[in-house]
Amino acid sequence: MKVTVDQESCVASGQCVMTAADVFDQRDEDGIVELLEDQPTEDRAEDVRQAAALCPARAIRVEGQSGFVR
């Protein structure tokens, strides 16, 4: 899976870091999201999708399937 973040939309809430601290971090200065890992391994997929869902600014994009079971 491939992850991208939009630092311009990010509101620095830190939900992503609380959910997947090995993938996301925040800048010390202003708390804006930083990506630690843009291609997380499959075993991190669930948490990364969760982080994208919890992000109040919709600043996290996960490419690949939505993770919905249909």
Partner: peptide, 11 residues
């Protein structure tokens, strides 16, 4: 207050 990362760490 203008300390987003630090306050999250203290949650």
């Amino acid at each position: 207050w203008n300390r987003p990362k630090q306050v999250r760490a203290r949650r």
